[in-house]
Write a protein that binds this DNA or RNA. Structure first.
Length: 461
RNA sequence: GGAGGAGUGGCCGAGUGGUCGAAGGCGGCGGUCUUGAAAACCGUUGUGCGAGAGCACCGGGGGUUCGAAUCCCUCCUCCUCCGCCA
């Protein structure tokens, strides 16, 4: 990414828009009608319809309902334009009459009043149709890419590679709860005092290990070309819609309470949301792409419906920590970029020497917004299982349409939607869990991976 | 939190009810001139929808009016000062 021009202390707001990444700023304040509805979405193109339908039979109904509303909307739009045209012509006539008190003027005014009423009624009906079509579209998932295998759920994901080997132990390996509590670095009972279930207090060398992990991850990513970002974690509704967390998954999110609805915020569920929304409603310079960001944030998830799953330990928490990587790329490069991004996430695991495998999610396990996702699954000896530690996805133009993120392929050409990608790089809590379990010794102490020692300045917990 | 001020095209900036998608300047593009360049001069230059005629857009939304960039309400954003804080 090109370095941003340093800002003058008293620079005006408007000149600040002269950002080298921006071909042209798009002025559109939040809550406006239908930024992404301006053309038939690509996912509804006949050739891609088959792909959306792989999501399951319910999607067919959604598509049909959307198309019906959209056809109605287009018809009304045409009709309304014709009436508007009449009104505009009549209005020109009025403007040319010098004598505003003449009978002619009065007669024309009455005619115009009728036309205006008709236009207003049409606009009201059009707004309803648009809102209806938009609502339908917001609930429609992304189309799986052709390379995504069909399948109903997790069991049908495809393992595409395995890195490293299972560490062998001359003793029965403990899980991270026993290890962490045993070393005095994890405290679930005390966490419950202030926050209840599904929270962890990390203490002492454990806390330092967390801090070291996030610094280490950000350093690796920035060395590899990502720009480090420290974003807000209280998020407005429109931004959550932009990346696809809303409206469908509102129950999964925490939100603040506020006297006025417009003062309400959602707690960031992943840095994907603020990072992707950095460029919402912008037209980017083609030469600036790919744009790459990395950020550490705390992440908050209500995880409704996950009761009873992973109740022990710090695998599934209401609050966790994660370093995320996000890319904005040209559409034709997005699948190559996905492989690179996955490599960037894998790099962290490799440098930490953690045994893991890569899984390609099948259509039934694919997230709502994603066209293709790889999960990185780290080996947890204490659970005798691979567990997700990173999820790397190509969203194609799904988020770009919702958040109106475009680029201009060449000067003078029409703006196109970018493709967005993101991946965890990595979930910090789960990385700590993996280190505890894979690097444990028989006496319950834990060796610190070499790559982290420069950060922790101790080599054993 | 309190008190003021402001948001118009890539940028600056005019426009306080109709002929305004919007003067003028800068920048960009094309041309004339030039060995070449600069200067000067001429022309051109927003976005989206639509097959097209056409329609929409002056921060967002709503209202007044026959008619709104212009008047009113509201929200957002930014600026200045005060207070508080990290």
């Amino acid at each position: 990414m090109a370095p941003r021009r340093p800002r003058e202390p008293r620079e005006s707001v408007r000149s600040r828009r002269r950002d080298p990444q921006l071909a042209r700023s798009v002025k559109r304040q939040y809550g406006s009608a239908l930024p992404f509805l301006t053309r038939t979405p690509k996912m509804l193109d006949p050739e891609r319809l088959g792909d959306v339908l792989r999501r399951g039979p319910a999607v067919k109904e959604q598509v049909d309902a959307f198309r019906a509303l959209d056809a109605e909307r287009r018809a009304l739009q045409h009709q309304l334009d014709a009436v508007r045209s009449q009104r505009n012509a009549a209005n020109d006539g009025m403007a040319r009459i010098a004598d505003k008190k003449s009978d002619d003027f009065a007669r024309m005014r009455d005619g115009l009043r009728a036309l205006s009423t008709e236009v207003k009624e049409g606009e009201a009906r059009l707004a309803e149709l648009e809102a209806g079509a938009r609502a339908k579209l917001l609930y429609l998932p992304n189309a799986p890419h052709a390379s995504v295998p069909d399948g109903a759920g997790e069991q049908e994901n495809r393992i595409v590679s395995v890195w490293g080997e299972k560490p062998t132990f001359a003793f029965a390996p403990k899980d991270h709860v026993d290890l962490g509590v045993g070393r005095g670095i994890l405290d679930f009972e005390r966490a419950a005092k202030m926050s209840g279930a599904r929270f962890t207090v990390v203490m002492g060398k454990g806390a330092k290990l967390m801090r070291s992990l996030l610094a280490f991850m950000l350093d690796v990513h920035t060395e590899r070309g990502y720009t480090e970002v420290w974003p807000p974690v209280l998020i407005k509704r429109h931004a959550m819609e932009g990346t696809g967390q809303l409206p469908k998954f509102e129950d999964d999110a925490f939100k603040t309470s506020a006297a006025r609805p417009e003062d309400e915020y959602f707690l960031c569920p992943t840095a994907e949301v603020p990072l992707t929304n950095l460029h919402r409603e912008e037209i980017l310079e083609a030469s600036a792409l790919p744009i790459r960001y990395t950020a550490y944030t705390a992440c908050f998830r209500a995880e409704a419906g996950a009761y009873g799953k992973d109740t022990r330990g710090m695998i599934r928490q209401h609050q966790f920590d994660k370093v995320e990587v996000v890319k904005f790329v040209r559409p034709e490069t997005s699948y190559a970029e996905l492989e690179l991004l996955r490599g960037d996430a894998e790099e962290i695991l490799r440098r930490l020497g953690l045994h893991y495998r890569v899984s390609l999610l099948c259509s039934g396990d694919l997230g709502f917004s994603s066209a293709k996702t790889y999960d990185l699954e780290v080996w947890l000896p204490g659970q005798d299982a691979f567990r997700e530690i990173s999820s790397c996805s190509n969203f194609e133009d799904f988020q770009a349409r919702r958040a109106m993120i475009r680029y201009r392929p060449a000067p003078g050409e029409k703006a196109r939607h970018v493709h967005t990608l993101n991946g965890s790089g990595l979930a910090i809590g789960r990385t700590l869990v993996a280190i505890l379990e894979q690097y444990q010794d028989e006496d319950g102490t834990i060796r610190v991976p070499d790559a982290l020692v420069p950060y922790t300045r101790f080599d054993r917990v």
